[in-house]
Design a protein around this nucleic acid. Sequence first.
RNA 1: GGGGGGAUUCCCGAGUGGCCAAAGGGGGCAGACUGUAAAUCUGUUGUCUAUGACUUCGAUGGUCCGAAUCCAUCUCCCCCCA
Length: 376
Amino acid sequence: MYKLIKTQGRARRGRFKTVHGEVQTPAFMNVATSAAIKGGISAPDLVELRCQVALCNTYHLHLRPGDEVIRDLGGLHKFMSWNGPILTDSGGFQVFSLSPLRKISEEGVHFASHIDGRRIFMGPEESMQIQANLGSTIAMAFDECIANPAEYDYTKQSADRTVRWLYRCKDELDRLKAENLIVNKDQMLFGINQGATFDDIRIDNMKKIAELNLDGYAIGGLAVGESAEEMYHIIQQVEPFMPVNKPRYLMGVGTPLNIINSVALGIDMFDCVMPSRNARHAHVFTWEGKRNLMNAKYERDSLPIDPECSCPTCKNFSRAYIHHLFKAQEMLAMRLSVMHNLYFYNTLMKKIRDAIDEGNFDEFREIASENIDKRI
RNA sequence: GGGGGGAUUCCCGAGUGGCCAAAGGGGGCAGACUGUAAAUCUGUUGUCUAUGACUUCGAUGGUCCGAAUCCAUCUCCCCCCA
């Protein structure tokens, strides 16, 4: 399964096989919530953008177009024309992001659909059934992502419930496989660590879920209100209890700097809406720092977004052109910017992997960190 | 030639005596965004020696303690009739 190739400090260079291809880690997964990268990016584009893994969402695809529709059309890979690995998030994040629209019980979560208010029930079994219909490469366990800061007692209660849900997820996935009710019979399952910002709950939770010998382990419930320092602290606390021979996924993180720092703490996989969402808002990442292409100073700037970048956007277009496209509200502005940012993130991961391979991750980290978070 | 309607801050447009440097929208300028309810949201947008002062509502003059708002004249624009 997961093969650890090399380490430098706590940073890990590895790879793992899936039925949809091998994943080289550390890796960034490109978020395609509704089976598309927002901003007009298709799966074939992702190949050119050096994407290894696409991430889709169980809750969103269940509502639209419906997981049974996707199953009947041959599964998510065929549906969106992406042959590489797909990880499906379980709907656990929507317990957080749609908190005004849901009610949690031991059984699961009742949502009022954010589209039309229709009542939706999703518990561990439902989430696994939906993900089975989608046929993703990696299914995520159904969890509750708790907002920070959180109450200790509630966090303990919730994290324990998430463990119980994890057992139910595993049982349900086993059943679906045994009864052949699944599009991808090799579907993998990752468990998710919760516990807000409480060391003891986090560690206790990690120990419990590690016992299940799942295909991978995620840290969830971070970057949801706490400081970066608190986030790094929790990763440091939990990491020693994560199985060494399994991929480790830090969910929803983060900024380029967050990713570099988290790799240094032993994380293998990431995902984040930041490269795509920020790009749609004209915010692009470069090796010199962050730029807002809407700024007036780009009106006559004939340079590409990043002179060092060889993405499809930077090879062809100037800052001035994209600035104009944003001003004119041309959708090409978003597409070009999203392409650049995804290429940037995927290239960041490639550079991290190369650096660990060559044993100079620390130097890379130091140099890259200097400018990457700066606003220019 | 006759009758009617207008002119408001970058633009459109509300306001018809004090609570008006003037609603709202657009545009401009900037910011936020971390398992996507986000092509979204927020701030700001007359000047300054700035908890106050000054200039501004087509122009000029007037009434009033006080005028974007009332009166007179003028300029320009639009519509209708000849």
